[in-house]
Simulated assay, not measured.
Amino acid sequence: MEIDATDRRILTSLQKDGRMTNAELSEQVNLSPSACHRRVQRLEAAGVIRGYVALLDERKMSRPTTVFVEITLSGQADEVLDAFERQVARIPDLLECHLMAGTADYLLKILARDTEDFARIHRQYLSRLPGVAQMHTSFALRTVFRTTAIPV
Rank of each mutant, 00 (worst) to 15 (best):
E70M: 09
F68L: 15
A101V: 10
D93V: 04
I91A: 08
P64D: 13
R59W: 13
P92H: 07
C36K: 06
D4V: 03
K16E: 15
Q15G: 07
T21L: 03
K109A: 07
F145N: 06
Q15E: 10
Y52R: 10
E2Q: 10
L126N: 05
S34F: 00
M1G: 14
L108G: 11
T103C: 01
A133T: 05
L31M: 15
N30C: 11
H37V: 00
I10H: 06
T21I: 01
A45I: 03
R123F: 13
R39E: 08
Q87H: 12
C36V: 03
Q124C: 03
Y52N: 02
Q134A: 14
P130C: 04
H122A: 11
G75P: 10
T148M: 05
A23I: 09
I10P: 12
G47F: 05
D105P: 10
S26E: 07
L107P: 05
G131S: 09
A119G: 04
F118C: 12
A89N: 08
L107I: 13
L25Q: 04
R42P: 01
T66Q: 12
Y106E: 07
Q15F: 04
G102L: 03
A77W: 08
A101W: 08
A89E: 11
V152D: 01
L99G: 01
D82I: 12
G131T: 10
Y52I: 00
A112G: 09
G51F: 02
V152Q: 11
L111N: 09
D78I: 09
N30S: 14
S13R: 12
I91N: 07
V40A: 05
Y106M: 12
P130G: 01
M20S: 00
A104K: 09
L99T: 07
S34Y: 02
R90W: 00
T65K: 14
